[in-house]
């Protein structure tokens, strides 16, 4: 967690009660936030339904796109419980960076990670067959945890709904693919996790597909 000078708490601290909106999708945004306490839900309204995109924890940053660009918010941030944040206006950004180069470094890390995640997601979405999309989501989930040994079975803590969301598919369609993979013995499907027998196998399939995608 980011260690900031005590004086910043007084100057930049803000608090939110449960279910309170911190900022709203499409609202012009000039501030970014560091979570000090409590969880924050990031959601978008898609087809008249509120979908949770992410749940952020203390130490996380959100609204960071507002730092350098004048664009409306791309999602809504909602306090899940009592939330305490540090809230920085883009006008203070330079002063903030000068006084807290640690923060600058942390922001670079965050952007690097987000860019990769977005790119990885795009790679999944660009695969045409639903079966390949689901496979690649499983690979991506495995890649996210450096602890996994790719030479043996890997247990992923994700359910079919999360997998469907990553793959940009309806849950029923993702479920169908997962059921198929279970039937052919490639995975074991549980309510809250998926066990992949041989992730290298999936990687080979996807790599070969990508190689020929544009030829």
């Amino acid at each position: 967690m980011l260690e900031l000078d005590e004086k910043f708490f007084g100057r930049f601290g803000a608090e939110y009660s449960p279910n309170q909106i911190i900022f709203c999708e499409y609202e012009p945004g000039y501030e970014f936030y560091f979570i000090q306490k409590g969880r924050v839900r990031i959601a978008r309204i898609i087809n008249d339904r509120e979908k949770t995109i992410d749940v952020l924890m203390p130490g996380d940053v959100f609204g960071e796109m507002a730092i350098l660009e004048e664009q409306p918010r791309s999602a809504t941030a909602i306090a899940m419980e009592h939330v305490r944040v540090l809230k920085f206006h883009r006008d203070n950004f330079d002063a903030l960076l000068q006084g807290n180069p640690q923060l600058a470094y942390k922001l670079l890390l965050i952007f690097s990670k987000r860019i990769y995640d977005a790119k990885r997601r795009l790679m999944i979405l660009l695969l045409e067959e639903p079966s390949l999309k689901v496979m690649d989501v499983l690979i991506m989930l495995a890649e996210q945890n450096p602890q996994y040994d790719f030479e043996s079975e890997i247990s992923l803590n994700s359910n079919s709904q999360q997998i469907a969301s990553w793959a940009g598919m309806a849950e029923a369609d993702a479920q169908k693919e997962l059921t198929h993979l279970t039937r052919v013995g490639k995975i074991d499907l549980y309510e809250d996790r998926v066990v992949v027998k041989n992730i290298r196998d999936f990687q080979r399939v996807i790599a070969s597909k990508r190689k020929h995608m544009f030829s």
Binding site: E64, M65, I67, L68, E69, Q71, S74, D94, L97, Q98, P101, Q102, A104, Y105, L107, L108, F111, S112, R114, I115, A118, K119, L122
Partner: peptide, 24 residues
């Protein structure tokens, strides 16, 4: 190195945020 040169960070952040926006 970058802790001593915040301007470099700011420049990088601008490039990164543009990339992220485009990807999204």
């Amino acid at each position: 190195m970058i802790l001593k040169n915040v301007n470099v960070v700011r420049k990088m952040l601008r490039v990164f945020s543009n990339q992220l926006r485009r990807l999204n």
